[in-house]
Nucleic acid binder design. Structure first.
Lengths: 337, 337
DNA sequence: CCTAGCACTCTCCGGTCGCGAGTGCTAACT
DNA sequence: AGTTAGCACTCGCGACCGGAGAGTGCTAGG
């Protein structure tokens, strides 16, 4: 069981780590917060917390770093929220009232302000329409090195896209590929399409991927606003070129839109925190996501989220995401009248 | 004087460097292109080219790297253009005809296609309105740590923006700052405003910067589309964290919009190449910019540009920028009818 | 004017070493 | 039983070499 003292200690470890981004040592804990015990005692407790999977050491002779499980408990029970001060509220609200009363402008502004306020990536997405499933695919030869992928969806819509090929394929070969893909992909949604594509190779894979993307396109992707890339990248977790590149690679409208949960599933007024491995996507393993929804009385219409390293100022970020979501919702309500 | 042979050699050095991103040695040149001379002779010629400021060595025992002057000559006389093939033209044009016939969608698509085609950053900007000059500034105390900057422009427009302060300033102090700034900035355009801000410190600097940005805002910034950040960042010139961060920091709509030349100054149909230090801004010192304008018969309305490291495939990029600009212009013409 | 040969320079890479930070464990203390 | 002082041990990190390799400039001879 997790004793009171150990829980408090965990809270301190997370606080400290969020602050310094460096493994937290028993000495640092004793020094910064005068708990009435020695470092040896703290070490014992830390060892217990490690056994229970809340924290870990990067290597034998290092301090402790929170694990996802530690963050989870922290977010649910230990952290102190830093509410949005009145000044801050006024400053933010003012900018909205000053802007043109257009939803697009509001959302873009909201993304910018939120990103600036929490120094992380802010994403605001407004999906439109329903995602459909595939009926079948056809391929049309365009030039030697490109073909047209035509996706026919179950609801009857027809979408097309050009794919460039690495090897020449004539119309017969294309037809064969199309037959195979149609068989495997019939009834598939975008995610299933991508899964099938994973198993294929070369041009056939490219075509399958294009098909999956066409299915995705059926959602008629609304606007997506992404801000704060720069602020996020300045954080120490991205101090190597590879991590930075990976972040830039993935932080794109297209990919994010399909990573964020549907606004319906969140519901207005609630804020969900998704930590590290709780994210489905592999690349998000050491990211956390704070998601909220906005909308009017007819229900939620969009998602507003902050993405950042798992080492994120949850207590600070969460209220701000919630506040901005609520603010937009109330702007929408007023606009409707 | 630059002999024929030396010019050719320079062309080869630039070609090779663009290709490999590594300093070019006399041996590499002799091996890859069977010039009828020995490496020693090549070394002599390279030494001359270095004296004349076209190329340089990163350190004594390294090969040669082109300097801006070398690139300039290359672009103007030596490079071989790689025209946009018919297939490529068709593939690109097709996507435009498939898109909704809205200028916004066209521009966004153009940025994406262009960036993908040249694997560098593509920027498309459509400025609107004229930039104005400042009449005077006023400051209004909002909260302890924020103030409202009110800029009155020469054409009578009034723009405002909130600035957060690092130190508390009361209304008297703010009034003093406003008086000082108004005196220094009267009649200034945005660039001059920024220059003055550079000389100031702390909150006064922040306020001056905000003022400069307000002046900029008077242009009523149109849409800016930026694509290809990721592709650009994968290039070897950004293989250090600092360079990458610097690029991300600067490649923002706001900053780029004010870096690109006015479409009027370029004129439809022409393509301008700006290499390294020829760029005004300090951060662009090792970037090159290929700029073209698009518009209809009433004149150019927007700028289309590709940004990349000075080591850029000029011969490949230039025709593609030109092509896309022309394509959009012609779409505009047709739409007008 | 060209070229073979050579001495020289400088970077890059791998290995070694010592320092410092931090831990876990043990034994004594309350 | 819980706490603590003391200590041996581990590990990462930065500094410091030293040799290999790449490339140059120069010289002397064709």
């Amino acid at each position: 069981m997790l004793t009171k003292r150990r829980a408090e200690l965990l809270g301190l470890v997370v606080d400290e780590y969020i602050d310094t981004a460096a493994p937290v040592s028993s000495r640092a804990l004793a020094a910064r917060h005068g708990l009435g015990v020695s470092t040896a005692t703290i070490r014992n407790e830390l060892a217990r917390l490690e056994d229970e999977g809340y924290i870990a050491q990067p290597h034998t002779s290092a301090g402790r770093v929170p694990l996802d499980r530690g963050y989870r408990l922290y977010v649910e029970e230990l952290m102190a929220e830093e509410p949005v001060g009145l000044n801050e509220q006024r400053t933010i609200a003012h900018q909205f009232h000053q802007a043109e009363p257009r939803l697009d402008d509001w959302l873009s502004l909201a993304a910018t302000l939120l990103a600036g306020s929490v120094t992380n990536v802010a994403v605001i997405a407004r999906p439109q329409g329903q995602a459909a499933r595939l009926r079948h695919v056809q391929l049309v030869e365009l030039t030697v090195d490109s073909a047209l992928v035509v996706a026919v969806l179950e609801d009857g819509r027809v979408l097309q896209r050009i794919v460039s090929l690495t090897q020449p394929l004539d119309q017969d070969a294309l037809a064969a590929v199309a037959r195979r893909l149609s068989a495997r992909l019939a009834g598939a949604d975008a995610a299933e399409g991508r899964a099938v594509a994973e198993e294929l190779l070369g041009d056939e894979q490219r075509i399958a991927l294009a098909t999956a993307e066409l299915i995705d396109d059926s959602r008629q992707v609304g606007e997506t606003y992404i801000e704060g890339l720069r602020a996020a990248l300045e954080q120490p977790e991205f101090s190597s070129v590879e991590r930075m590149l990976e972040a830039v690679r993935h932080l794109q409208a297209y990919e994010l839109l399909h990573t964020l949960p549907d606004p319906q599933q969140i519901g207005r007024g609630t804020t969900r925190v998704v930590i590290g491995h709780e994210n489905g996507s592999a690349w998000l393993q050491d990211w956390s996501m704070i998601v909220s929804a906005f909308g009017d009385r007819d229900g939620p219409v969009g998602t507003i989220a902050v993405l950042g390293p798992t080492r994120m100022r949850y207590g600070y970020t969460i209220p701000r995401v919630r506040y901005v979501a609520a603010l937009i919702s109330s702007l929408l309500e007023h606009a409707h009248r």
